[in-house]
Structure formats: C-alpha cells, structure tokens
Amino acid sequence: MSGNKLEDLNVASQETLITPETLKQDMPLSGSAAQTVTDGRQAIYDIIDGKDHRLFLVVGPCSIHDADAARDYAARLKKLADEVSDTLLIVMRVYFEKPRTTVGWKGLINDPHLNDTFDIERGLQLGRRLLLDINELGLPVATEALDPISPQYLQDTIAWSAIGARTTESQTHREMSSGLSMAIGFKNGTDGNLDVAVNAMKSVSYPHSFLGIDQQGQVAIIRTKGNRYGHVVLRGGGGKPNYDSVSVTLCEQALDKAGLRKSIMVDCSHANSSKDPAIQPLVMQDVSHQILEGNTSIQSLMIESNINWGNQSIPENLADLQYGVSVTDACIDWATTEKAIRDMRNKLKDVLPGRKAV
C-alpha cells in the first residue's frame, strides 16, 4: 500500500504562475491612474454615505474579450462621463471572469485566446494592461471578484467590485470581500433570494481570517478589518424582476430589520430585463421615476452595454468575431447607452441635489 499515490489523482499538470508583486513591477500603476482609483473609490463612498448627491452607474460590456474594443468603448464612455458628471458618476464595467452554470468560456483571464488554451498568465497581463489604460483616461473601473486569488494581481486598479449571484452565499467570497479595498455590491441569489445578500453585507462588515496568498505568491493567513461599504444589488431572479417600487420597499425593510444601511443598486440586466437588452432603458426609466417620487435608497445602477447590440457565440474562426459585440450576455449598443444615460441625467439633475441622505 505504501506505493499507492494518494494525491493529485485528477490533476493533469501544474504550472507556476507569475507573482502579484512581479506583475505589478512589470506593469506599475502610474500616479495619474492611482489618482483615478482613489478618487473613484472616495466618490462611491461619499454617494453611499449620502455626502454626494449623485448616483453611480456601472456601465460596460457583460464581459471583455477584445481589449482593443474595450479601449474604444472606454474612450467613448469617458466623454459621456464628463458630460453627465454633475448628476451621475460613471464607472466602467470591466469583467474578466465569468461564472458558468455548467461549462463555457470563463473569461479573458482564464482563456485570453478564446480557444481553451487557458493561458492564465497572459490573461493577467492583458487584463492589468487594460485596467491601467482605462484608469489613465481618468475613468474608474469596476469588476466582479470571482476568483479569490486574482484580486492580489488586479484590485489596486479597481474602484468598485461585485460579488455575483452564484457566489454571494460563499463564505470564501464573503471573507475575501471583508478585506477588499473598495465598496462591494452583493447580488441577490439567482432564485431571487434577498437574504443571501443581506447576510453577506452583515458578514463582510466584520473582521475575518482565512487562507490566501501574499504579494510574493506565498500561502498566507489573511486577517481583515472588515468592509463597511457592502450594499445590495437587485438583479431579479427566479424568472421575475425585482426593481419595481414594491420590491425595492421590501429590500429596504429587510435591510432596516438587519440594522444595515439602505443602499441599493439596481442591475438593469439579468432577470430584471429577462435578458432582453431592449428592456434595460425601461428599467432605468422606472428607477428615475421612483427617485422623482421620493425614493432615497437606490444609489446606483448597473447597465450592460457595448459598442454594438446583442451578443454572439465564439466562432471556430476568431476572424469571424463581430467587432464590439458581446460573447456572453446581450448588451445594448452605444447609441442606446448614450440616450438612456443622458435621459436619466436630464430627469434627475434638478432632483438629486435635494435628496435626503439614507
């Protein structure tokens, strides 16, 4: 029996990955990019604290698969962000990791070549380069913290993070979030369950100790201080939306009962739009109406937007990819994005300055 192998029976291979410290040395954050991160984080804190009357909008592709198209999108979004900055703080959605219900493309970091080669080190390099470039524009960025290791490589560039519907209930992600250096949005469960997000908010506000890696890539015990800027993201679920005024009121009541701040983000996509991008602007209109009617708890929105409309499957010949079209969930196009955001700004610009702090 002593000759029997007991470990790694289902492991095909292992590769040593570049350390977070080395990647950051190779691709350092410039002074101007660091200022974008700092200012973006503080503005979001101030909005959540009720010190800044604006809403913050996380806007961008469902996922990034083409870094050049993402730069094109970022340049457009920066101009729009400057135009509406008196009313809306625009943060670009830059999602590199995609949770899958079964199997499928897992995102730019895991599979940057879109061909199941899983060149993760190249994915980290491409991802960090893109994040640096967008921050250099003066546009803060948001992402989903999915893998518990990758934040050590990238989170110094991020102004806001999400924990997705599939991982909000995960202890690993709650512990990780308690140590992240920005506000964190927790989505309700895929079945629409709100309790998992409320419980996550409570959990991350406390210190935690857990296993992770340090900047040198060594396994370490991570001890956190807790994060008091957790908030709920309503994304619908179980085939039903939950952005309407009744659902928002029920969320407010649940947060109040738990002794938590009534800070709500509405995700205009996913079950709130029945995955039909044409419904996203209608959700934005409904939210604007709720605010005009006196709502004070909705402080942010998420919008899935790309250069061109809809989505596409990843073709066998990558040369056949359509430019600026999502390879995951369908998105609204740029023209629709501009109009929806300008309309929201025009409706709310005179109302938000007098909004009461939550």
Rank of each mutant, 00 (worst) to 15 (best):
R228G: 07
R228L: 09
R228Y: 03
G230Y: 00
G230E: 06
G230V: 01
G230M: 04
H231I: 06
V232A: 02
V232S: 00
V233Y: 02
R235F: 05
G237F: 11
G237R: 07
G237Q: 07
K240I: 09
P241A: 10
N242M: 02
N242V: 02
Y243W: 05
D244Y: 05
D244V: 05
D244W: 09
S245Y: 04
S245E: 14
V246L: 13
S247K: 05
V248Y: 09
V248R: 14
C251A: 15
C251E: 05
E252G: 07
Q253M: 13
A254I: 06
A254H: 10
L255C: 05
L255H: 06
D256A: 15
K257E: 13
A258C: 01
A258V: 02
L260A: 02
L260W: 01
L260G: 00
R261M: 07
R261D: 00
K262M: 06
S263H: 08
S263W: 12
I264G: 00
I264T: 00
I264W: 00
I264N: 02
I264H: 00
M265N: 02
M265F: 00
V266N: 03
D267T: 02
C268F: 05
S269H: 08
S269R: 06
S269A: 14
S269D: 12
H270C: 00
N272D: 02
N272V: 02
N272T: 00
S273A: 12
S274M: 11
K275G: 03
K275P: 07
K275Y: 10
K275R: 09
K275A: 02
D276E: 13
D276N: 14
A278R: 12
A278W: 06
A278P: 08
A278S: 12
I279C: 01
I279L: 10
Q280S: 02
Q280P: 06
P281H: 04
L282A: 11
L282V: 09
V283F: 04
M284D: 01
M284L: 14
M284H: 04
Q285L: 10
Q285V: 00
Q285C: 06
D286A: 14
V287F: 03
V287Q: 01
V287W: 03
S288W: 04
H289V: 10
H289D: 15
Q290G: 05
Q290N: 06
I291V: 13
L292V: 05
E293F: 09
N295Y: 11
N295M: 09
S297I: 08
S297T: 15
S297M: 08
S297Y: 12
S297V: 04
S297R: 07
I298N: 05
Q299L: 14
Q299H: 11
S300F: 10
S300R: 10
L301N: 09
L301R: 08
L301C: 11
M302D: 04
I303V: 15
S305R: 10
S305D: 12
S305P: 11
N306D: 14
I307N: 13
N308D: 13
N308F: 12
G310R: 14
G310E: 13
Q312P: 03
S313Q: 14
